[in-house]
Amino acid sequence: MTVAVLVPHDVPTVLNYYVPDPESDEPPHIYIIDAPAGKKRDNIGREPHDVVIHDARGKEKEYDLSLDTSGFQFVKHVSQEKEFDDDERVKNVYYKEVEELLKKETGAKRVFVFDHTLRRTEPDFVSPEGKVIRGPAEAVHVDQTYEASVARVHRHLGDEAERLLKGRVRIINVWRPIHNPVAHRPLTVSDWRTVDKEHDLVPVRFIFPDQRLAGVYSVRYNANHKWYYLSDQTPDEVTLIKCYDSEVDRARFTPHTAFLDKTSPKDAPYRESIELRCLVFDTE
């Protein structure tokens, strides 16, 4: 057995990968609202596997990490928004910042932010204002299947979709810590070049009441996967996570998940983060 050699901030941990649900013979799915009577919300099994998360800080060039090579990129970006506690301000101020950031980093001509999610380390809970705050996603996944990505363009851009789909289309998740450097449950991303595209991806259908086409890829374990994170990632550092690319000769996505870092100080603040998912077009 080969023992991984750790550098100072590399972290041994456990990640949850996909396994079939032995109680279900249906294709993998998740009911987004309410499951029918007598059915479970999903039929996705999880299997923990030991991995090492490599610290990319200061080694981005050495590891050749970028959106088009590995499927993700770490970028310094200072936002005017600090609290992210007002949805209207997030949409009116932060969305515009992210649009400009993605144009600068990718050369895109047009960016459409289609949603954002706030997360905390604790499990999902309801705030005093009645808003559900989601916890970190703790299973390896890709945010969109290829088919669901194309459907996103049709859903949000309507009559412009066919024209835009003739050019390059990407979906990029822009992930940022809030308030403090990340200690508990950091984000880790896997290098596209280490993913077996034929074996590792498991399409999972999202079932909505309106039957829209939506879904993610769950991911099977593969010992070749190489995982990275940015140690002590601050609110002025964002992770760009590629979820889809219509171009086939470069990285098209990156699996990702939160992970447990047992080396984090126990008294460090809980993780808070915001992610924006964006359609990125090379044409106007």
Rank of each mutant, 00 (worst) to 15 (best):
K76I: 14
A161K: 06
V90Y: 03
I30G: 04
E83C: 14
E147L: 07
V5F: 07
R176S: 00
N173T: 11
V153A: 00
E122H: 12
N92P: 11
N43K: 02
H179G: 01
K104A: 13
I241P: 04
D55A: 11
S127I: 07
A268P: 01
R185M: 08
K242G: 13
V93T: 00
D249F: 05
I171M: 15
G45Y: 03
P48S: 12
T117E: 06
A56M: 10
K131A: 15
A4I: 08
E97A: 04
L276H: 14
P22A: 07
K242Q: 10
V248H: 10
A161T: 12
E88T: 14
D143G: 08
D261Q: 01
D245E: 04
A37Q: 03
R119P: 09
P20E: 13
F84V: 03
E247L: 13
D10Y: 07
R212G: 03
H9A: 15
I172G: 07
V113Q: 06
I172N: 10
G107K: 01
V219E: 00
G38P: 03
K61H: 07
E100A: 09
D261H: 00
T283W: 04
W227A: 03
P123W: 07
V140Q: 09
P20C: 10
V78I: 09
I241D: 01
H179I: 03
A4D: 09
P20H: 00
K59R: 15
V132W: 06
V150Q: 06
V111Y: 03
E23R: 13
I274P: 04
G158L: 09
D267E: 15
W227F: 10
V19M: 06
E99M: 14
A137T: 13
E81D: 15
V153I: 05
V113T: 05
H116P: 03
S246L: 11
V219R: 03
E100Y: 10
P203D: 05
E26A: 14
I274A: 06
R212H: 02
A137N: 10
R185T: 06
Y229M: 02
V126I: 15
A151W: 03
F125Q: 08
R168I: 07
Q80A: 12
E237A: 08
S273G: 12
N224V: 04
G45F: 01
R168S: 09
D124N: 02
I207H: 00
D124L: 08
H179C: 04
L101I: 01
P8G: 15
S218A: 13
T69M: 13
Y31F: 08
P28S: 04
V216I: 15
E83Y: 12
K266R: 11
E105V: 14
T254G: 09
K266G: 13
P265L: 01
P8D: 15
R212T: 08
R119N: 09
G167T: 14
P28I: 01
E162F: 13
D143R: 06
N92Q: 14
D191W: 01
D200K: 06
A4K: 02
E105H: 12
G130D: 06
K76M: 12
G58E: 05
P48Q: 11
P48R: 07
K226F: 05
K197N: 11
F84G: 09
E237L: 11
T106Q: 00
V280M: 02
G71K: 02
F206T: 04
P22N: 02
S218H: 10
G158D: 02
L240F: 07
R176P: 05
K104S: 14
H77E: 05
V93F: 02
D86Q: 08
D86V: 05
R271L: 01
G215K: 00
L230C: 14
